[in-house]
Amino acid sequence: MPSVSTGAPKYSVGRWADERTFREPTMLINESQIRALIRLLADEDEKIVRTISGKLIDIGPSAVPLLQEAEIEQPEMADRLVSVLEEIRGGNLEDELMQLAALPDGPMDLEQGAFLIARYAYPSLTVTSYTRQLDEMAQEVQDRIGPRASGEETIKTLNRYLFTEQGFKGNTKNYYELENSYLNCVIDRRTGIPISLSTLYLLVGKRLGLPVQGIGMPGHFLV
């Protein structure tokens, strides 16, 4: 049976196959065992690699730091490490979305949901930097209107601020570009599609105390 040989101790599936921790992902597994599994991602046998990848995915977040610092022992191992990391992160985000959707009746946290979707494409996304930008946008609008502005005045100022001063616009040239749907990209590039631009508008509007709501229409999304 193929095994990894890199100067470090050799490991093979046989060593782990008889261990209860290998068969049951719910069992505790220590750091040295995780490192041993990671080294097996360099094995030449694709069946072994698939089995080990599945085990690491089952271990989940506790394996992430060790996967990130793992020494690359052969070219294919780098791709395998990335694949396992993506599966772990994707699974965690899916769980978070399911939990968000399963909350009792009431309005879903739009901001949390929007950034969860963005983290699918950008796992290392620093959400707080973008929430801070949304706070700053709302504050800049508030500074322009003062404390006694009417709702109509606030909306006009918000429209001018977002779509004229800040230059947010629809991506008419590349409507189906994935980045149009990720709120962090919309904020960075000042470009999006109706639903992502509406999300931005809702989040800034809520910070200003406006009673804005999103309305799903056939083929459209309106605020």
Rank of each mutant, 00 (worst) to 15 (best):
K206M: 07
L110N: 01
L85C: 11
I29S: 05
W16S: 08
H220T: 00
D95E: 13
N171V: 02
Q133A: 06
L222S: 12
M108H: 01
G216W: 03
R35A: 07
L81T: 01
R15S: 09
A63R: 02
P194T: 03
V186D: 04
G7S: 08
G151L: 15
E136M: 10
S124E: 15
L66W: 07
A8Q: 14
G170M: 09
N159I: 01
T51E: 14
T164P: 00
N92G: 15
S181R: 09
L110P: 07
P211M: 08
C185G: 01
E152K: 15
L100P: 08
S53N: 02
T6Y: 11
G205H: 02
D18L: 10
E76K: 15
P218Y: 07
D105Q: 07
E177G: 08
L222N: 10
Y176K: 13
M108W: 00
L125F: 12
E44G: 03
G219D: 11
R89V: 14
E31P: 01
P75V: 03
N92V: 13
A42M: 02
E94N: 14
S12M: 08
R160Y: 09
A36H: 07
L200R: 02
G167K: 14
I38M: 06
E165W: 04
H220C: 00
L222Q: 11
Q74G: 09
T128Q: 13
M98W: 09
I38K: 08
N159Y: 07
A70M: 08
S32F: 07
P65Y: 04
M77V: 03
F22G: 05
R80D: 00
P104H: 01
P9A: 09
E94D: 15
D43H: 06
N159F: 05
L116H: 05
V4W: 01
R35H: 05
I57G: 05
D18V: 06
R189P: 12
T128F: 05
G192T: 02
R23S: 15
E177D: 15
A70C: 08
I34G: 02
T164D: 13
V204E: 12
G54W: 05
Q139W: 12
R35I: 07
R132Y: 14
E96K: 11
Q112I: 00
L67G: 09
V204M: 13
V64E: 13
M27N: 12
F163R: 05
L116K: 04
G113P: 12
S198H: 06
E136N: 14
D43A: 13
E179Y: 08
I57W: 04
M137P: 11
A70Q: 05
E96T: 00
A138P: 05
E24C: 08
T199C: 10
R132V: 12
Q68S: 12
W16E: 08
F163I: 04
A102K: 08
S5V: 10
I34Y: 01
R89M: 13
D135K: 04
D109H: 00
E71K: 15
A78W: 03
E24V: 06
E136W: 07
L37F: 11
P218K: 12
E73L: 15
I72Q: 09
L67P: 13
T157E: 14
S150L: 10
P194D: 11
T172G: 06
V4Y: 02
F22Q: 06
Y182V: 00
Q112S: 03
K156N: 14
S150F: 10
V82Y: 11
N159V: 03
A101K: 13
K173G: 04
E96S: 10
P65E: 03
